[in-house]
Every structure is written in structure tokens, then in C-alpha cells.
């Protein structure tokens, strides 16, 4: 499988503090790759650097393009999309306007298929269709997350990066969001998923990285990591009791 995104020796500094030292990771086309790890491990920072929001050193290679200057606009055009943890919706604007703005760069480049893409997004999130003229800020947390993902999909990205999509959502909604994430893979969208909810993330992902202190601590196929005793202990939170149950 060819790598869609290839990151090598990524380093990011905040002032004199090195927030990320030496992260290398790959996302293959059509894969869901997850990055898990504790708070402050550098997960969000890595996504920001890959998106071009932060200057970084090292190599970022996306879909055959070597990334030089940190330039978000260009990476959006090449097919990268990031759904940030804060969602960053346009609160006072309608659901429909939010979605249309997700296709801003495609519109600028002369593509006029927004109506059709919007129908596809509505098919994926029927709730958004019901609320198409409602202001984004007036919706529930789950709906806002759906809108944030839908807005990113309007740009028809090749790689969708999701930062903590389950944060602050009710368990039922979380399940639905994860169901949609694995559905997206079947449509050919590759996904880089950053999650605190390691259990759910490892279930949908093909490959996983564990980030600690700004570096990759472990990596491997998601299934294997989910059974790795160190991961179970630190991130799946059931500890030795669960292991004991598994081993019997």
C-alpha cells in the first residue's frame, strides 16, 4: 500500500520549548490510522504541524507533494482537512453556509459540485439536513461535531484529520460518530484520528501510534496494540484485572 501521508523527523518548537521531537508516521491510502496518548503528548500539535498551522522542521510528504512553507491554503487544495478539537464552526451562520464554506477552495478553483456534495453529507448526517437553516451555535454538541466533520468533507479531502471527535459527547453519539468514521474509509477517505478514547479508536483503526512526551513510544497494527499489555495498562484503563480475565 502506498503512503498518502508520510511524516519524517517532525519537530515543533514553541519558543525554546521543543513540543515535539522527532515524530515519524505514515498513513496509507484508504487507511484509518489513530494516534493515542496522554494529554500533552503532542497529538494536537502534530496535527497542527501537518496541516501547516505551525511552522515545523522535518519532512512532510502528502500525496506526492513535499511540503515546504507552512501554508494551510495550499494543503487544503492538495486534499488535507482538519477537524479541530474546538470544531471552530461559524456559530452565527447557518448549517448550510457552514457547509458551503467547507467547499470554499474547491469553489475558488472552479468546481461547482457543491449541491451534490452537500446532499452526500446530508445522507451521511440526516440530522444536519433537518437543521440546514439553523445557526450552528444553537445546535447540540453532537450535531456540532457532525457539522464540523460534514464541513470538512465538503472540501472532498483525501485525508481527513480528526482531533478528539468524541470529546464531550454522550456515549450513544460517540458510537454513531465512530460508525461514520469507519463508513468514510469505505468511501475511500483516509483518516488520521487523534483520540483520548483509546478503546474506540483502536477498534476502528487499521494502524496505531502511541505518543508520549512528544515522541512515538509504540506503534503497530491497531489490533495488536489493543492486546499489548502496556497499552492495556496505560490507555485502556482496566489494568491487570482485565488482563487476568483475558488470560484465563
Amino acid at each position: 500500500m502506498s503512503a498518502l501521508l508520510k511524516v519524517q523527523d517532525l519537530r515543533v518548537n514553541y519558543g525554546k520549548v521543543e513540543a515535539i521531537h522527532n515524530i515519524s508516521l505514515e498513513v496509507g491510502a484508504g487507511q484509518i490510522v489513530t494516534v493515542i496518548g496522554p494529554n500533552g503528548a503532542g497529538k494536537t500539535t502534530s496535527l497542527a504541524a501537518i496541516m501547516g498551522l505551525l511552522p515545523s522542521s522535518g519532512h512532510i510528504d502528502f500525496d506526492g507533494h513535499v511540503q515546504r512553507a507552512a501554508n494551510v491554503e495550499k494543503r487544503v487544495i492538495q486534499g488535507l482537512a482538519l477537524v479541530p478539537e474546538k470544531r471552530d464552526l461559524f456559530g452565527e451562520m447557518s448549517v448550510e453556509d457552514n457547509l458551503l464554506l467547507g467547499a470554499f477552495q474547491r469553489f475558488r478553483k472552479g468546481h461547482r459540485d457543491q449541491a451534490q456534495t452537500m446532499e452526500e453529507v446530508f445522507a451521511l448526517f440526516p440530522r444536519l439536513a433537518e437543521r440546514r437553516s439553523q445557526a450552528a451555535a444553537t445546535m447540540s454538541g453532537g450535531e456540532r461535531q457532525m457539522l464540523a466533520i460534514g464541513r470538512a468533507l465538503m472540501g472532498k479531502p483525501k485525508l481527513l484529520m480528526l482531533d478528539e471527535p468524541s470529546l464531550g459527547l454522550a456515549p450513544l453519539i460517540v458510537r454513531e460518530i465512530f460508525r461514520i468514521i469507519s463508513g468514510l474509509r469505505d468511501r475511500g477517505v483516509s483518516i488520521l484520528l487523534v483520540e483520548q478514547n483509546a478503546r474506540a479508536a483502536l477498534q476502528v483503526a487499521d494502524y496505531a501510534y502511541v505518543l508520549e512526551m512528544g515522541a512515538v513510544a509504540m506503534q503497530g497494527p491497531a489490533r495488536e496494540l489493543a492486546d499489548d499489555p502496556r497499552v492495556v495498562e496505560a490507555y485502556l484503563g482496566l489494568g491487570s484485572k482485565h488482563q487476568a480475565m483475558l488470560s484465563t
Partner: peptide, 26 residues
């Protein structure tokens, strides 16, 4: 117009607009 909406989006949420590829410079 989408350009007008993009300007409004920039004033409502600059970082969100940036992620849509609406560059603050433009």
C-alpha cells in the same frame, strides 16, 4: 456570494476560516 460569506466567516471564527483554506491574507 461565497466570497462575502467567507469574509463573514473570517470575522466570526478566524481559525475556522483558516482551516477552510480562506487565507487571512486574501
Amino acid at each position: 456570494s461565497l466570497y462575502g460569506k467567507a469574509l463573514r466567516a473570517t470575522s466570526v471564527n478566524p481559525s475556522g476560516a483558516k482551516l477552510m483554506g480562506i487565507s487571512p491574507v486574501v
